[in-house]
Each structure stands twice: as C-alpha cells, then as structure tokens.
C-alpha cells in the first residue's frame, strides 16, 4: 500500500511542468479580474435596451409587410429577390473579386519575403550542416536580413486590415485598391510568417544533395525548397482566403463598393430590413466560400 502511495508521489513529482504557461495563466486571470473590477460596464439600462430591441425587431420585417399589411410570404420573397437583382449579386461579386485579388497579391508578397525570413536558408551556408564557419561579418549580415524581414512581416500583420484600408482610402481615393492593398499587406504578413516556418521545417536531404553538387543558393531555393513547401502553402492560402472574404465585406463599410457599403448605406438610412438581408447575404457568401475552400484544401493535400 505504502509502496503504491510512494510510487504515485514519485509519478506526481515527475509530472511535466511548464512554469511559463502557469505564470501566463495567472497573469491572464489577474488581468481579467482587474478589467472586471475597473470597467464598470453597466448591465443596467435594461428597459431602454429592450425598447431599442423592440423597435429594431419591427424595423427588420421586410418593408412591404410593415405596419398593417397582411403577412404574405410571396411578397417577402419578391422583395428579397428584387433587392438581390438590383444590388445584391453585383455587391457580392465585387466582394469576392476584391478578396481574390487581395489573396493573390498577398501570396506574391509573402513568397518574396518567405525565403529571406527562413533561418535555415538565409545564412552563409544554406541548409548544409557541418561545413567550416564563414567569417563572422557574413553570418551577422545574414542574421540582420532575417531579423529585418521578420520585423517587416510583424509590422504588416500587427496593423489590422481595417486600419490599413482607412489609411489607404485617404491616399488613393474611393476605388477598390485601398481594400485590395489593405487585405494584401495584412495577409502577406501572416502568410510570410507561416511560410518561413514551413521553409524552416523542410526536409534538408534534397537541398543538401543539390548543394553537394554545387548548386547556388537560388537554385537550391527554386528546385529543392519551394516545391516542398507548395502543398502546405496552398492550405494556408485557402485558409486566409476565407478570412479575406469576411474582411472584404467589412472593408466596404469605409465606402469601398462591396457588400459592406450596402450594409452601411442601409444603416445610415435606417432601413434595417435591407441591412439584415445584406448581412445574411454576406454570411451565405462566407459559408459557400468556406465549403469551396475545404474542397480546394483537400485537393491541395492530394485527397
């Protein structure tokens, strides 16, 4: 019996511990408590909120059915279809178009940044262990290149798409470019970081073999590294494409023609019935693109 207790205690002492994670959890709980203690969000004001909600619910009913009009499903469907035909389809297509161009541009920028951000490739002897160390200043230069590239990628993804788009809108005027560039830059930051990790995890056998045959750094990158990363990068590409669709809708609220601009116009005019239709159309678009992206990711994985 005592043997078993001792054994249990030994196991308990030998459990894996992660002090950093435990400390992080404590700090996070303290932060949440501090926020709860100081923010003082009013849960009250329920009466007014309820009146607001009631007003909103009556305004969400399709316009031809508001007031004393008798409920008729056909009228509601006609109303919805006319909205779709007049504005909805075009806005949805524009949203998709912005997202597609943004993600393609993001992938191009990210691919250019991926190679100099990967520590195993961007050094004096790429992907070749056990060679004589090069002069210190060359090693330092390569390390600096990696650090600078990574800092740029961090900067790109730390600024939210919405802020990028807001800034670009003031500099480029109202055309699709601010939305495309904003999405492209933010996602280039994310895809570049993920890509660098993929490159750092490639199987070094093929690059080492090419190196032994005297291939240059660029040849190694083009023929032994990049081909290995393609399936993984395609997964990330479609994962970010889904996000781009969501964001392209939202960026329209700044005034770039997409679903978001319809949502904002309806909100300003207090046509909440239309607004809900546009938000729902955006949700359907996201669900469709998600399904498409799941299929494409399967194809990229080779299933």
């Amino acid at each position: 019996m005592t043997d078993r207790t001792a054994e249990l205690q030994r196991l308990w002492r030998a459990r894996s511990r992660n002090r950093f994670a435990a400390g992080s959890a404590v700090v996070m709980v303290v932060l949440l408590l501090a926020v709860a203690a100081t923010s003082g969000f009013a849960i009250g004001g329920g009466g007014e909120r309820l009146r607001n909600l009631r007003r909103f619910v009556t305004a969400v009913v399709p316009y031809p059915l508001q007031g004393d009009a008798p409920f008729d499903v056909r009228v509601a469907i006609d109303w919805g279809l006319r909205l779709l035909r007049d504005h909805g389809i075009d806005a949805a297509a524009r949203t998709v178009a912005i997202a597609v161009l943004a993600i393609v541009l993001a992938q191009i920028i990210a691919t250019l940044c991926t190679l100099p951000a990967a520590r195993n490739l961007a050094r004096s002897e790429p992907l070749t262990p056990g060679v004589a160390p090069s002069p210190w200043w060359r090693a330092a230069a390569w390390r600096a290149l990696v650090s600078v590239t990574r800092a740029v990628l961090t900067l790109l993804r730390a600024i939210p798409e919405y802020v990028w788009a807001f800034l670009f809108l003031a500099m480029l005027g109202a055309n699709p470019w601010p939305a495309i560039l904003a999405l492209a830059l933010h996602n280039a930051g994310i895809l570049g970081r993920l890509g660098a990790e993929v490159v750092e995890n490639v199987d070094p056998a093929a690059p080492a073999a090419l190196r032994a045959l005297g291939a240059s750094r660029r040849q190694i990158a083009a023929f032994a590294v990049v081909p290995q990363t393609v399936p993984r990068m395609l997964l990330y590409f479609f994962y970010r494409f889904e996000t781009c669709i969501r964001e392209a809708t939202v960026l329209g609220m700044l005034g770039i023609a997409s679903l978001g601009s319809l949502i904002d116009d309806a909100r300003v005019a207090r046509r909440y019935d239309e607004m809900v239709v546009w938000v729902s159309l955006g949700a359907v678009l996201v669900l469709v693109i998600d399904a498409l992206s799941v299929w494409a990711r399967g194809a990229a994985r080779g299933r």
Binding site: S39, F41, A42, I43, G45, E48, R49, N52, L53, F56, V57, Y162, R246, E247, T249, V250, M253, I263, D264, R267, Y272, M275, V276, V279, G282, A283, V284, V286, L287, D290
Partner: peptide, 25 residues
Amino acid sequence: IALFRSVHELLWAVLLLCALGNSPL
C-alpha cells in the same frame, strides 16, 4: 457555430448597435 461565425465581428457590432443602442456591451 457555422451560422454565428459566418458574420464578422464588426458586422455584429453594427447589428448590435442598431438593436441594443450605444453601449459598451
């Protein structure tokens, strides 16, 4: 999950601002 996730947080913000009024909640 699929339904509520498909609406972006900023669109939720617009919807809730219209439905519940101006409040941090």
